[in-house]
């Protein structure tokens, strides 16, 4: 019971913070939106799927699941940036000296970031009618599931990294090093079948690829541009989320100050 209240309080705080900071709300939506419009319309005429593959709706539609994934990654990861400062000087120290579980701290933060990330991603789904896409109910359930799991995975990853960082600048540096390559190599921008063999191997090894493919399945039932079947996508995304949660919990259970 107490664990649930702690989680609830932490989740509520994340949401309140986000809603009160209008620039964050705008920033998390504007960047992926701009990327989608610019890249999508830019390549719409020249994009050619690999032989034998049918991609309905052209590049704008092909890119869309990747943009959803980008919204998820950015919102989830950057919801944890405040952890860097709050751990070294204040707010989270108060949580650490309270008689509450360390796991609840991780779960509360992860859940907060996940709600934000999923909310933003679902907001993007309002663009679906523009694409002429009518997803099925099962498809939407799959999209929601992938959103939540990806949100948890990346908030937990962000938390684990932020917990070890002394400055937000360092956090930004690490994130740029990790986040964008993960996205570029996820099959979000190009069909993996058409890529060079070495690149293809990287895409296969990248957990984000399975989130993007899962979203593709959900939005375009029977798509041919996915890396694996929907079940495999769900399983890999779940495993990634569980692994990242475990990493974050392990991290937060270490002595608070290095000795």
């Amino acid at each position: 019971m107490h664990v649930l209240r702690t989680i609830g309080a932490l989740t509520g705080r994340e949401i309140l913070k986000f809603v009160r900071d209008r620039s964050r709300v705008l920033g998390a939506v504007a960047q992926p939106l701009a990327l989608w419009v610019l890249l999508g319309l830019g390549f719409q005429g020249t994009f050619r799927p690999p032989a034998g593959m049918d991609v309905e709706g052209g590049y704008v539609a092909f890119l869309f699941p990747g943009i959803l994934a980008l919204v998820l990654l950015f919102t989830a990861i950057f919801s944890t940036i405040s952890v860097v400062d709050e751990r070294t000087s204040g707010f989270l120290q108060a949580v650490m000296v309270a008689p509450t579980s360390r796991t609840a701290l991780v779960l509360g933060n992860a859940l907060g970031g996940t709600v934000l990330a999923t909310g933003q991603a679902l907001l993007f789904l309002l663009a679906l009618p523009l694409l002429g896409v009518r997803p099925t109910l099962e498809g939407m359930a799959l999209v929601a599931g992938i959103c939540v799991l990806t949100g948890i995975g990346f908030t937990a990853l962000g938390f684990a990294i932020a917990w070890r960082m002394d400055t937000t600048r360092g956090f930004h540096a690490v994130m740029n090093l990790v986040l964008l390559p993960l996205w570029f190599l996820s099959g979000a921008m190009f069909p993996v079948e058409g890529a060079a063999p070495m690149l293809r191997a990287l895409v296969w090894a990248n957990p984000v690829s399975y989130a993007v493919s899962g979203l593709r399945h959900g939005l375009y039932t029977g798509t041919e541009a996915a890396l694996a079947g929907p079940v495999v996508c769900l399983l890999v995304t779940t495993a990634f989320a569980a692994l990242m949660l475990a990493l974050a919990v392990w991290q937060v259970r270490q002595p608070f100050f290095r000795t």
Binding site: R5, T6, G8, A9, R13, L16, K17, R20, D21, E86, G90, F91, L92, Q93, A94, V95, A98, P99, T100
Partner: peptide, 18 residues
């Protein structure tokens, strides 16, 4: 150890939950 974005009362309620 307070969250600047939250009100005084919200901060104390958060602490209470802990």
């Amino acid at each position: 150890a307070l969250d600047g974005a939250l009100t005084v009362r919200e901060n104390l309620r958060f602490q209470g939950a802990l």
